[in-house]
Amino acid sequence: EPLWIRPDAPSRCTWQLGRPASESPHHHTAPAKSPKILPDILKKIGDTPMVRINKIGKKFGLKCELLAKCEFFNAGGSVKDRISLRMIEDAERDGTLKPGDTIIEPTSGNTGIGLALAAAVRGYRCIIVMPEKMSSEKVDVLRALGAEIVRTPTNARFDSPESHVGVAWRLKNEIPNSHILDQYRNASNPLAHYDTTADEILQQCDGKLDMLVASVGTGGTITGIARKLKEKCPGCRIIGVDPEGSILAEPEELNQTEQTTYEVEGIGYDFIPTVLDRTVVDKWFKSNDEEAFTFARMLIAQEGLLCGGSAGSTVAVAVKAAQELQEGQRCVVILPDSVRNYMTKFLSDRWMLQKGFLKEEDLTEKKPWWWHLRVQELGLSAPLTVLPTITCGHTIEILREKGFDQAPVVDEAGVILGMVTLGNMLSSLLAGKVQPSDQVGKVIYKQFKQIRLTDTLGRLSHILEMDHFALVVHEQIQYHSTGKSSQRQMVFGVVTAIDLLNFVAAQERDQK
């Protein structure tokens, strides 16, 4: 057995438009009618409502009807409940999964919650491996369901041993009777949507819809739904939504950006999952974080739909894509998950301010006199920076000697690579993860907040409520011999709460 199987392995699926269902090699399930009293909570997966979006479509000038398939009504709160249950049931049916076995899954959280929910009911041990950027709410729900959680670096490539995929496979090879159901490759993922989600949409719309818009992560949702719609409703256009920084969209030119990270969760990847059939997507749109969270908040405030950030991405694209539809036509959007997962993220004004998705003037509360002053007023001194090749031991000596707790790590040209902190280095040394002679590049981390000289002290204040420091950066445009230009970030300084307090105190003292 291989040590790991690539999540982007070539698909062996034989589905073709027009091929009889009787030739399918898979076990198919028909939607079942729910009894009045459910035998367990797993029976509350599927049969989610279709809700008309009344205000947002009109606000953006849509002539067509805009409908939302509300997947956050599933038992675990997301569309991923469907595939989690289906993968477990299919693994039980073919004898792969037996009582007492362990389920391991690399996930952005929602599939993990679905699997942990099913594992709690069915009696399996469950280990979820997820990147650090995923919300604390997801972690809390997983723990409450009895799952064990392993976190991995957000910026690790999918084929790196440190990625959530790599760590999951390492655990599988170490733990007896453990299984990775593997949402990236498992046919049960798109089949769950082909058999149930798509049929529900067709039934709820009486077979009449002209466009379907869905955000894409593993691709199982859009693949399964689109294949069924292509068979039953061939005139329906399928629109895929991919965040900026991901590479799922086609044509490839759409993916060209210097951005590699994004805040919206559960969609987009740096590889093409095996289950994603991009041939059934008629057109791709890219979405960005700001519009995703703005539209998610709009869905909550104006439509009462308590959905997550990827739902915002989907609707932001839908109001663009559906401009081509006329009166009497219908566009369906998939709202994948609930706001429950993001209470401390985009639902929080403070978080939105820190990330730059909300401006101070958007909030009406009274601010102190210094709130709208610029960061450049602080008069920061030149920063202490270190090269990635310097040793951890030497870096600790320098920081202690100069009285700093942290320093930016830059390359020879001064471009920011990340940050090192005294606390992080000492804990890594004590844990045996690094040696004093190791290069400081081994303990770089990139989960820090950046701020510009033109940003306000109010925004800085919000950042420092949650973080010990902020890195002050400025952009530099560099022209190359080819005539092309590129933008790079340079370090201007490091600012802490002490710097802000000293500035405010000094100004008030001078005024007296």
Results as ranks from 00 to 15, higher is better:
residue 239 I to A: 07
residue 241 V to P: 03
residue 242 D to S: 02
residue 245 G to A: 04
residue 245 G to I: 00
residue 247 I to M: 09
residue 248 L to F: 02
residue 248 L to P: 00
residue 249 A to E: 05
residue 249 A to L: 05
residue 249 A to M: 02
residue 250 E to P: 10
residue 250 E to F: 04
residue 251 P to N: 03
residue 253 E to W: 08
residue 253 E to Q: 14
residue 255 N to V: 00
residue 257 T to Y: 08
residue 260 T to E: 13
residue 261 T to F: 11
residue 262 Y to P: 05
residue 264 V to E: 01
residue 264 V to M: 08
residue 266 G to L: 03
residue 267 I to G: 02
residue 268 G to F: 00
residue 272 I to K: 07
residue 274 T to E: 02
residue 274 T to V: 02
residue 275 V to W: 01
residue 277 D to N: 08
residue 277 D to W: 06
residue 277 D to T: 05
residue 278 R to E: 02
residue 279 T to R: 14
residue 279 T to A: 13
residue 279 T to P: 14
residue 279 T to N: 13
residue 280 V to C: 09
residue 281 V to G: 02
residue 282 D to F: 15
residue 282 D to H: 04
residue 285 F to S: 10
residue 285 F to K: 05
residue 286 K to W: 00
residue 287 S to V: 08
residue 288 N to D: 10
residue 290 E to L: 12
residue 291 E to T: 10
residue 292 A to E: 08
residue 295 F to Y: 12
residue 296 A to N: 05
residue 298 M to D: 11
residue 300 I to K: 04
residue 301 A to D: 11
residue 302 Q to D: 15
residue 305 L to K: 02
residue 307 C to L: 05
residue 308 G to T: 00
residue 311 A to K: 06
residue 313 S to R: 03
residue 314 T to D: 06
residue 315 V to A: 11
residue 315 V to Y: 05
residue 319 V to Y: 09
residue 319 V to P: 04
residue 320 K to L: 11
residue 320 K to F: 11
residue 320 K to T: 15
residue 320 K to D: 05
residue 322 A to Q: 02
residue 323 Q to L: 15
residue 323 Q to K: 12
residue 324 E to F: 15
residue 325 L to T: 05
residue 326 Q to W: 09
residue 326 Q to M: 15
residue 329 Q to N: 07
residue 331 C to T: 01
residue 334 I to K: 02
residue 335 L to E: 01
residue 336 P to Y: 02
residue 337 D to I: 02
residue 338 S to E: 08
residue 341 N to I: 01
residue 347 L to R: 01
residue 347 L to P: 04
residue 348 S to D: 13
residue 349 D to E: 11
residue 353 L to S: 08
residue 354 Q to E: 12
residue 355 K to E: 10
residue 356 G to H: 07
residue 357 F to C: 02
residue 358 L to P: 07
residue 359 K to H: 13
residue 359 K to A: 08
residue 361 E to Y: 11
residue 362 D to A: 13
residue 364 T to H: 11
residue 365 E to T: 14
residue 365 E to Q: 14
residue 365 E to R: 15
residue 365 E to N: 05
residue 366 K to G: 09
residue 368 P to C: 08
residue 368 P to W: 07
residue 368 P to A: 08
residue 368 P to Q: 06
residue 370 W to N: 01
residue 370 W to V: 09
residue 370 W to C: 15
residue 375 V to A: 13
residue 375 V to H: 08
residue 375 V to I: 14
residue 375 V to D: 07
residue 378 L to D: 02
residue 378 L to Q: 01
residue 380 L to A: 13
residue 381 S to H: 13
residue 384 L to C: 09
residue 385 T to D: 06
residue 386 V to Q: 06
residue 386 V to A: 13
residue 387 L to Y: 11
residue 394 H to M: 09
residue 395 T to F: 05
residue 397 E to I: 09
residue 400 R to I: 10
residue 401 E to V: 15
residue 401 E to S: 10
residue 401 E to C: 15
residue 403 G to T: 10
residue 406 Q to G: 14
residue 407 A to T: 14
residue 407 A to H: 05
residue 410 V to K: 09
residue 412 E to G: 13
residue 412 E to C: 15
residue 413 A to T: 15
residue 413 A to K: 14
residue 415 V to H: 11
residue 415 V to Q: 13
residue 416 I to A: 10
residue 419 M to L: 15
residue 419 M to V: 15
residue 420 V to E: 13
residue 422 L to C: 15
residue 422 L to I: 14
residue 426 L to C: 15
residue 426 L to K: 07
residue 427 S to K: 07
residue 431 A to M: 10
residue 432 G to F: 11
residue 432 G to N: 09
residue 432 G to T: 05
residue 435 Q to H: 15
residue 440 V to F: 07
residue 440 V to G: 10
residue 441 G to R: 12
residue 442 K to F: 15
residue 442 K to L: 15
residue 443 V to W: 09
residue 447 Q to V: 11
residue 448 F to W: 13
residue 449 K to F: 10
residue 450 Q to C: 13
residue 450 Q to E: 14
residue 450 Q to H: 09
residue 450 Q to V: 08
residue 456 T to M: 15
residue 457 L to Y: 14
residue 458 G to R: 08
residue 459 R to G: 12
residue 460 L to D: 02
residue 460 L to Q: 02
residue 461 S to T: 11
residue 462 H to T: 12
residue 469 F to T: 09
residue 469 F to G: 14
residue 471 L to I: 13
residue 474 H to F: 10
residue 475 E to K: 13
residue 478 Q to D: 05
residue 481 S to K: 12
residue 481 S to Q: 11
residue 483 G to F: 14
residue 484 K to M: 13
residue 488 R to L: 13
residue 489 Q to E: 12
residue 492 F to R: 15
residue 492 F to L: 14
residue 494 V to S: 05
residue 494 V to G: 06
residue 494 V to H: 03
residue 498 I to H: 08
residue 498 I to P: 12
residue 503 F to M: 13
residue 504 V to I: 06
residue 506 A to C: 11
residue 506 A to R: 10
residue 507 Q to T: 05
residue 508 E to Y: 10
residue 508 E to F: 15
residue 509 R to N: 12
residue 511 Q to L: 11
residue 512 K to R: 14
residue 512 K to T: 12
residue 512 K to F: 10
